[in-house]
Design a protein around this nucleic acid. Structure first.
Lengths: 136, 136
DNA sequence: CTAAGTGCAAAATGTTTGCATACTT
DNA sequence: AAGTATGCAAACATTTTGCACTTAG
C-alpha cells in the first residue's frame, strides 16, 4: 500500500544523506530543487508526514524557530524505552538509552501524581559540542 | 516605561480570571470582544508577549494544536528551581517544586554530556485528573 | 512633548488541501 | 482497473508588521 515512485526515492535519498543532521521541510525542498526529479512542496510535506508515522523520521520543534525540524532516526525504531534530548543550539536530537527514567516515572507518579509520557517529552539543553561554544 | 491603558486593564483582568486555566490568544480575543473596551488582536498578542517576558504568563505548546497556550503564573516568578509538567489532555501547566532534577542534572552531565535546561524543558504526560479519564 | 500603546488591514510564515492528472501494482 | 502519489495553486491558521493615530506620563 505504499507505491514506489521516483520522487519518493529521491526524497528518501536526500533524507538519509542528512544522516543525523536535523533539517526543515524547507531545507529539503531546496535540496530537491536541483534534482533530476524535482519534488513539490506538497509531496515533501506529505512524505515527511508518512515517514514520521512510520517511525523513520522524528519531528520536533526548537524554539524560537517556528518551523518543524526533522531528523532521520531509522535505526531507533525501538522508541519505547529511551528518551530524547534536543540541543537548542545546534538543534540536534539525541537518543539516550538509560534507565534513569524508570525511577523517575515512579517518582513523578507517586510524589506528584503525574504520569510522564516519555514519547512526547523532550529534554532541552546543550549538547557536549555546544557547551564549549556558548556562554549563555 | 509601561503605561497603564484601559485595554491593558481589561486584558489583565480577563487573563487573571482564567486563574490557572490555559488559554489561547484566540480564546482571549473572543472574550474581549464582549467588553466595554474591545481590544484588538494586535494588542492582545503584543501584550501577551510582554507579559511573558515579564514572567507573569507562560507560553507553551501542546501538540497537535498549532496555537500557543498561555497560562497565568503570576505567583511562580521564582522559575529558577522548579520544573514544568504539561498535561497533553487538559493542556494545563503544572509547576513542580522538587529537587529530583538536581541529581538528574549531574547525571545527564556526567553520563550523557548533556546540560539540561530546566527553563525550556517541559515534561509531557497526564495529570492526576486526566489519568482517570483517558484510556490511551 | 515624548515615549508608549493602539487599531486596522496587509503581510508573513509554515503547512495543508482540493482537484485534475499520472503512475504503480 | 483500483488504489496511490503528484503538482499546482489556492486555502489555512496563527502570528507579526507598518503606519497613522491616540493616549499616558
Amino acid at each position: 500500500m505504499t507505491y514506489r515512485t521516483k520522487q519518493r526515492d529521491v526524497l528518501l535519498d536526500k533524507i538519509m544523506a542528512y544522516e543525523e543532521e536535523p533539517f526543515t521541510a524547507d531545507d529539503l525542498i531546496l535540496k530537491l530543487m536541483s534534482t533530476s526529479k524535482p519534488v513539490s512542496k506538497a509531496t515533501v510535506y506529505r512524505t515527511l508526514d508518512k515517514l514520521e508515522r512510520d517511525g523513520l523520521v522524528r519531528k520536533y520543534y526548537v524554539e524560537p524557530s517556528e518551523s518543524a525540524f526533522y531528523q532521520y532516526v531509522g535505526q531507533h525504531l525501538d522508541c519505547e524505552d529511551h528518551y530524547h534530548c534536543v540541543c537548542y543550539q545546534c538543534e540536534r536530537l539525541f537518543h539516550i538509552d538509560c534507565h534513569i527514567f524508570d525511577d523517575l516515572d515512579a517518582h513523578f507518579q507517586n510524589e506528584h501524581h503525574f504520569k510522564i509520557d516519555l514519547q512526547r517529552t523532550i529534554l532541552y539543553g546543550l549538547c557536549e559540542n555546544c557547551q564549549g561554544e556558548v556562554t549563555l
